[in-house]
Protein backbone atom coordinates (compact mmCIF):
# COMPACT_ATOMS: atom_id res chain seq x y z
CA UNK A 1 0.00 0.00 0.00
CA UNK A 2 1.18 2.93 -1.06
CA UNK A 3 0.04 6.44 -1.19
CA UNK A 4 2.42 9.01 -2.37
CA UNK A 5 2.22 12.75 -2.53
CA UNK A 6 1.98 12.74 -6.28
CA UNK A 7 1.22 16.15 -7.59
CA UNK A 8 -0.73 15.91 -10.76
CA UNK A 9 -2.10 18.53 -12.99
CA UNK A 10 -5.47 19.33 -11.59
CA UNK A 11 -7.59 22.39 -11.24
CA UNK A 12 -6.23 24.37 -8.31
CA UNK A 13 -7.94 23.47 -5.08
CA UNK A 14 -10.79 25.79 -4.31
CA UNK A 15 -11.82 26.49 -7.89
CA UNK A 16 -15.00 28.54 -7.59
CA UNK A 17 -18.04 26.36 -8.06
CA UNK A 18 -21.36 27.89 -8.98
CA UNK A 19 -23.26 25.94 -6.36
CA UNK A 20 -20.90 26.49 -3.43
CA UNK A 21 -21.79 29.35 -1.16
CA UNK A 22 -19.29 30.72 1.37
CA UNK A 23 -21.70 29.62 4.08
CA UNK A 24 -21.61 26.00 2.93
CA UNK A 25 -17.85 25.99 2.67
CA UNK A 26 -17.51 27.48 6.13
CA UNK A 27 -19.97 25.02 7.68
CA UNK A 28 -18.05 22.20 6.02
CA UNK A 29 -14.73 23.43 7.42
CA UNK A 30 -16.35 23.69 10.86
CA UNK A 31 -17.32 20.04 10.70
CA UNK A 32 -13.76 19.11 9.70
CA UNK A 33 -12.30 21.22 12.49
CA UNK A 34 -14.62 19.53 14.96
CA UNK A 35 -13.22 16.14 13.79
CA UNK A 36 -16.61 15.15 12.42
CA UNK A 37 -16.38 12.52 9.66
CA UNK A 38 -17.71 13.37 6.21
CA UNK A 39 -19.84 10.65 4.67
CA UNK A 40 -20.54 9.85 1.02
CA UNK A 41 -23.79 11.70 0.60
CA UNK A 42 -22.93 14.70 2.76
CA UNK A 43 -22.39 18.02 1.09
CA UNK A 44 -18.72 18.63 0.31
CA UNK A 45 -16.79 21.17 -1.73
CA UNK A 46 -16.08 19.95 -5.23
CA UNK A 47 -12.35 20.39 -4.70
CA UNK A 48 -12.45 18.16 -1.60
CA UNK A 49 -14.24 15.49 -3.60
CA UNK A 50 -11.77 15.74 -6.47
CA UNK A 51 -8.77 15.66 -4.18
CA UNK A 52 -10.08 12.52 -2.54
CA UNK A 53 -10.88 10.79 -5.81
CA UNK A 54 -7.39 11.58 -7.05
CA UNK A 55 -5.68 10.37 -3.89
CA UNK A 56 -7.80 7.28 -3.23
CA UNK A 57 -7.72 6.08 -6.82
CA UNK A 58 -3.95 6.62 -7.01
CA UNK A 59 -3.66 4.63 -3.85
CA UNK A 60 -5.84 1.84 -5.31
CA UNK A 61 -3.86 1.78 -8.56
CA UNK A 62 -0.65 1.53 -6.55
CA UNK A 63 -1.94 -1.55 -4.77
CA UNK A 64 -2.81 -3.20 -8.07
CA UNK A 65 0.42 -2.33 -9.88
CA UNK A 66 2.30 -3.16 -6.69
CA UNK A 67 1.31 -6.79 -7.12
CA UNK A 68 3.63 -7.07 -10.10
CA UNK A 69 7.15 -6.67 -8.71
CA UNK A 70 6.41 -9.16 -5.95
CA UNK A 71 4.47 -11.41 -8.28
CA UNK A 72 7.68 -11.60 -10.27
CA UNK A 73 9.11 -13.86 -7.52
CA UNK A 74 6.07 -15.94 -6.66
CA UNK A 75 6.95 -18.77 -8.99
CA UNK A 76 10.57 -18.74 -7.77
CA UNK A 77 10.07 -18.36 -4.01
CA UNK A 78 12.67 -20.55 -2.34
CA UNK A 79 10.41 -22.50 0.04
CA UNK A 80 6.77 -23.48 0.06
CA UNK A 81 6.20 -21.49 3.23
CA UNK A 82 7.69 -18.34 1.70
CA UNK A 83 5.65 -18.94 -1.43
CA UNK A 84 2.40 -19.17 0.54
CA UNK A 85 3.21 -16.08 2.62
CA UNK A 86 4.12 -14.04 -0.44
CA UNK A 87 0.95 -15.11 -2.21
CA UNK A 88 -1.15 -14.17 0.81
CA UNK A 89 0.52 -10.77 0.86
CA UNK A 90 -0.03 -10.15 -2.84
CA UNK A 91 -3.62 -11.25 -2.44
CA UNK A 92 -4.01 -8.70 0.35
CA UNK A 93 -2.80 -6.05 -2.07
CA UNK A 94 -5.50 -7.03 -4.54
CA UNK A 95 -8.00 -6.84 -1.68
CA UNK A 96 -6.73 -3.46 -0.59
CA UNK A 97 -6.99 -2.16 -4.12
CA UNK A 98 -10.56 -3.38 -4.09
CA UNK A 99 -11.39 -1.70 -0.75
CA UNK A 100 -9.92 1.54 -2.05
CA UNK A 101 -11.72 1.47 -5.37
CA UNK A 102 -14.91 0.93 -3.37
CA UNK A 103 -14.13 3.91 -1.15
CA UNK A 104 -13.52 6.09 -4.21
CA UNK A 105 -16.73 4.85 -5.81
CA UNK A 106 -18.71 6.38 -2.95
CA UNK A 107 -17.57 9.75 -4.33
CA UNK A 108 -19.40 9.16 -7.59
CA UNK A 109 -16.66 7.81 -9.85
CA UNK A 110 -16.98 4.27 -11.23
CA UNK A 111 -14.27 1.65 -10.98
CA UNK A 112 -14.43 1.30 -14.76
CA UNK A 113 -13.62 4.99 -15.10
CA UNK A 114 -10.71 4.76 -12.68
CA UNK A 115 -9.32 1.73 -14.49
CA UNK A 116 -9.66 3.55 -17.81
CA UNK A 117 -7.72 6.47 -16.37
CA UNK A 118 -4.98 4.17 -15.13
CA UNK A 119 -4.66 2.36 -18.44
CA UNK A 120 -4.64 5.55 -20.46
CA UNK A 121 -1.85 6.90 -18.28
CA UNK A 122 -3.98 9.75 -17.00
CA UNK A 123 -3.98 8.45 -13.44
CA UNK A 124 -0.74 7.83 -11.58
CA UNK A 125 0.45 5.18 -9.18
CA UNK A 126 3.30 5.14 -6.72
CA UNK A 127 6.64 5.55 -8.48
CA UNK A 128 8.21 2.81 -6.37
CA UNK A 129 6.64 0.04 -8.44
CA UNK A 130 8.51 1.13 -11.51
CA UNK A 131 11.66 -0.34 -10.02
CA UNK A 132 12.51 -3.96 -10.80
CA UNK A 133 12.54 -6.81 -8.25
CA UNK A 134 15.75 -8.47 -9.36
CA UNK A 135 16.57 -10.97 -6.63
CA UNK A 136 14.76 -12.80 -3.85
CA UNK A 137 16.24 -10.27 -1.42
CA UNK A 138 14.19 -7.60 -3.15
CA UNK A 139 11.07 -9.31 -1.83
CA UNK A 140 12.50 -8.80 1.64
CA UNK A 141 13.42 -5.19 0.89
CA UNK A 142 10.00 -4.42 -0.57
CA UNK A 143 8.26 -5.74 2.54
CA UNK A 144 10.61 -4.03 4.95
CA UNK A 145 11.17 -0.67 3.23
CA UNK A 146 8.28 -0.18 0.82
CA UNK A 147 5.62 -1.50 3.16
CA UNK A 148 7.37 0.22 6.03
CA UNK A 149 7.18 3.57 4.25
CA UNK A 150 3.61 2.82 3.28
CA UNK A 151 2.62 2.14 6.86
CA UNK A 152 4.04 5.50 7.95
CA UNK A 153 1.81 7.10 5.37
CA UNK A 154 -1.23 5.00 6.07
CA UNK A 155 -1.60 5.05 9.80
CA UNK A 156 -2.50 8.75 9.87
CA UNK A 157 -4.95 8.09 7.02
CA UNK A 158 -7.02 5.96 9.39
CA UNK A 159 -8.05 9.29 10.90
CA UNK A 160 -8.76 10.93 7.56
CA UNK A 161 -11.84 13.16 7.56
CA UNK A 162 -13.59 11.17 4.84
CA UNK A 163 -15.41 8.25 6.49
CA UNK A 164 -15.23 5.60 3.74
CA UNK A 165 -11.50 6.23 3.17
CA UNK A 166 -10.78 6.20 6.86
CA UNK A 167 -12.66 2.91 7.34
CA UNK A 168 -10.89 1.32 4.37
CA UNK A 169 -7.56 2.40 5.82
CA UNK A 170 -8.35 0.97 9.24
CA UNK A 171 -9.07 -2.39 7.65
CA UNK A 172 -5.96 -2.16 5.46
CA UNK A 173 -3.62 -1.22 8.31
CA UNK A 174 -4.93 -4.09 10.39
CA UNK A 175 -4.35 -6.57 7.61
CA UNK A 176 -0.98 -5.20 6.62
CA UNK A 177 0.58 -5.55 10.00
CA UNK A 178 2.25 -8.77 8.85
CA UNK A 179 3.55 -7.42 5.54
CA UNK A 180 6.49 -5.48 6.84
CA UNK A 181 7.44 -8.24 9.24
CA UNK A 182 7.51 -10.90 6.53
CA UNK A 183 9.91 -8.70 4.56
CA UNK A 184 12.20 -8.15 7.50
CA UNK A 185 12.04 -11.85 8.30
CA UNK A 186 13.26 -12.70 4.77
CA UNK A 187 16.21 -10.35 5.26
CA UNK A 188 17.04 -11.76 8.69
CA UNK A 189 17.29 -15.20 7.11
CA UNK A 190 19.52 -13.87 4.32
CA UNK A 191 21.75 -11.89 6.65
CA UNK A 192 22.25 -14.97 8.81
CA UNK A 193 22.95 -17.04 5.72
CA UNK A 194 25.82 -17.50 3.29
CA UNK A 195 28.03 -14.66 2.07
CA UNK A 196 26.17 -14.70 -1.20
CA UNK A 197 22.85 -14.33 0.55
CA UNK A 198 24.12 -11.45 2.64
CA UNK A 199 25.48 -9.72 -0.45
CA UNK A 200 22.07 -10.18 -2.04
CA UNK A 201 20.47 -8.42 0.94
CA UNK A 202 22.94 -5.51 0.83
CA UNK A 203 22.40 -5.11 -2.89
CA UNK A 204 18.64 -4.97 -2.37
CA UNK A 205 18.98 -2.28 0.31
CA UNK A 206 21.30 -0.32 -1.98
CA UNK A 207 18.71 -0.28 -4.71
CA UNK A 208 15.53 0.20 -2.65
CA UNK A 209 16.62 2.74 -0.05
CA UNK A 210 16.39 5.94 -2.08
CA UNK A 211 13.25 5.03 -4.01
CA UNK A 212 11.61 4.23 -0.65
CA UNK A 213 12.43 7.72 0.65
CA UNK A 214 10.88 9.15 -2.50
CA UNK A 215 7.63 7.36 -1.68
CA UNK A 216 6.76 10.15 0.75
CA UNK A 217 6.53 12.55 -2.14
CA UNK A 218 8.24 15.86 -2.86
CA UNK A 219 9.59 17.85 0.04
CA UNK A 220 7.11 20.15 1.77
CA UNK A 221 8.08 23.38 0.03
CA UNK A 222 7.54 21.68 -3.35
CA UNK A 223 4.27 19.97 -2.55
CA UNK A 224 1.32 21.83 -4.01
CA UNK A 225 -1.54 20.01 -2.34
CA UNK A 226 -0.13 19.63 1.13
CA UNK A 227 -1.55 22.69 2.84
CA UNK A 228 -5.10 22.27 1.63
CA UNK A 229 -5.07 18.53 2.36
CA UNK A 230 -3.87 19.27 5.89
CA UNK A 231 -6.65 21.80 6.40
CA UNK A 232 -9.18 19.22 5.23
CA UNK A 233 -7.61 16.60 7.49
CA UNK A 234 -7.08 14.27 4.58
CA UNK A 235 -3.42 14.52 5.46
CA UNK A 236 -2.23 14.75 9.05
CA UNK A 237 1.53 15.07 8.64
CA UNK A 238 3.68 16.60 5.93
CA UNK A 239 5.76 14.56 3.51
CA UNK A 240 9.00 15.55 5.20
CA UNK A 241 7.73 14.76 8.69
CA UNK A 242 6.75 11.25 7.63
CA UNK A 243 9.98 10.71 5.73
CA UNK A 244 12.02 11.72 8.78
CA UNK A 245 10.04 9.38 10.97
CA UNK A 246 10.65 6.54 8.55
CA UNK A 247 14.40 7.15 8.47
CA UNK A 248 14.54 7.36 12.26
CA UNK A 249 12.94 3.97 12.76
CA UNK A 250 14.52 2.19 9.80
CA UNK A 251 18.21 3.00 10.21
CA UNK A 252 18.53 1.06 13.50
CA UNK A 253 16.80 -1.90 11.83
CA UNK A 254 19.41 -1.86 9.07
CA UNK A 255 22.09 -1.86 11.75
CA UNK A 256 20.46 -4.85 13.38
CA UNK A 257 20.68 -6.69 10.07
CA UNK A 258 24.32 -5.68 9.71
CA UNK A 259 23.58 -3.85 6.47
CA UNK A 260 24.83 -0.44 5.43
CA UNK A 261 22.36 2.25 4.41
CA UNK A 262 23.66 3.66 1.11
CA UNK A 263 23.93 7.27 2.27
CA UNK A 264 27.37 8.57 3.26
CA UNK A 265 25.88 11.68 4.78
CA UNK A 266 23.59 9.76 7.11
CA UNK A 267 24.33 10.84 10.66
CA UNK A 268 22.48 10.83 13.96
CA UNK A 269 21.95 14.31 15.34
CA UNK A 270 22.07 14.12 19.15
CA UNK A 271 20.53 17.58 19.51
CA UNK A 272 17.37 16.88 17.51
CA UNK A 273 17.20 13.14 18.10
CA UNK A 274 16.81 12.60 14.36
CA UNK A 275 18.99 11.29 11.56
CA UNK A 276 20.31 13.80 9.04
CA UNK A 277 20.36 12.39 5.53
CA UNK A 278 21.83 13.18 2.16
CA UNK A 279 20.06 14.92 -0.67
CA UNK A 280 17.38 12.95 -2.51
CA UNK A 281 17.76 12.84 -6.28
CA UNK A 282 14.49 14.51 -7.17
CA UNK A 283 15.34 14.43 -10.83
CA UNK A 284 15.17 10.64 -10.70
CA UNK A 285 11.82 10.91 -8.96
CA UNK A 286 10.45 13.21 -11.63
CA UNK A 287 11.81 11.00 -14.40
CA UNK A 288 10.19 7.89 -12.99
CA UNK A 289 6.95 9.75 -12.46
CA UNK A 290 7.06 11.00 -16.03
CA UNK A 291 7.17 7.42 -17.26
CA UNK A 292 10.90 6.92 -17.53
CA UNK A 293 11.55 4.51 -14.70
CA UNK A 294 13.04 1.08 -15.36
CA UNK A 295 9.67 -0.71 -15.47
CA UNK A 296 6.92 1.83 -16.25
CA UNK A 297 6.15 0.45 -19.67
CA UNK A 298 6.35 -3.15 -18.57
CA UNK A 299 3.97 -2.61 -15.63
CA UNK A 300 1.40 -0.79 -17.71
CA UNK A 301 1.65 -3.25 -20.59
CA UNK A 302 0.97 -6.15 -18.25
CA UNK A 303 -2.02 -4.39 -16.66
CA UNK A 304 -3.43 -3.44 -20.05
CA UNK A 305 -3.04 -6.95 -21.36
CA UNK A 306 -4.77 -8.47 -18.33
CA UNK A 307 -7.63 -6.03 -18.71
CA UNK A 308 -8.01 -6.60 -22.44
CA UNK A 309 -7.65 -10.37 -22.20
CA UNK A 310 -10.38 -10.37 -19.57
CA UNK A 311 -12.90 -8.39 -21.60
CA UNK A 312 -14.64 -11.41 -23.17
CA UNK A 313 -14.89 -13.05 -19.75
CA UNK A 314 -16.45 -10.02 -18.09
CA UNK A 315 -18.86 -9.68 -20.95
CA UNK A 316 -19.82 -13.36 -20.91
CA UNK A 317 -20.69 -13.18 -17.22
CA UNK A 318 -22.74 -10.06 -17.76
CA UNK A 319 -24.64 -11.50 -20.72
CA UNK A 320 -25.25 -14.75 -18.84
CA UNK A 321 -26.65 -12.84 -15.86
CA UNK A 322 -28.91 -10.75 -18.08
CA UNK A 323 -30.17 -13.80 -19.95
CA UNK A 324 -31.00 -15.60 -16.74
CA UNK A 325 -32.50 -12.62 -15.01
CA UNK A 326 -34.85 -12.31 -17.99
CA UNK A 327 -35.67 -16.03 -17.82
CA UNK A 328 -36.29 -15.89 -14.06
CA UNK A 329 -38.58 -12.91 -14.50
CA UNK A 330 -40.56 -14.61 -17.28
Amino acid sequence: MYTQGLDQKDKPAGTPQGAETPGQVEAFQDRIDAEDKIEAKDWMPEAYRRTLIRQISQHAHSEIIGMQPEGNWLTRAPTLKRKAILLAKIQDEAGHGLYLYSAAETLGVSRAQMVTDLLSGKAKYSSIFNYPALTWADIGAIGWLVDGAAIMNQIPLCRCSYGPYSRAMIRICKEESFHQRQGFDILVALCNGTDEQKAMAQDALDRWWWPSLMMFGPSDNESKHSAQSMAWKIKRFTNDELRQKFIDVTVPQAEFLGLKVPDDELEFDEKTGHYRHGEIDWQEFLDVLAGNGPCNRQRMAKRRKAHEDGAWVREAARVYAEKHAAKDAA
Binding site: L87, I90, A94, Y101, K302, A306, V313
Partner: peptide, 10 residues
Protein backbone atom coordinates in the same frame (compact mmCIF):
# COMPACT_ATOMS: atom_id res chain seq x y z
CA UNK B 1 0.19 -18.44 -9.27
CA UNK B 2 1.68 -17.82 -12.70
CA UNK B 3 -1.60 -15.99 -13.35
CA UNK B 4 -1.41 -13.66 -10.37
CA UNK B 5 -2.06 -10.06 -11.41
CA UNK B 6 -3.56 -11.21 -14.71
CA UNK B 7 -7.12 -12.31 -13.88
CA UNK B 8 -10.06 -10.73 -15.73
CA UNK B 9 -11.42 -8.89 -12.71
CA UNK B 10 -10.16 -7.97 -9.26
Amino acid sequence: IELVAAYPEL
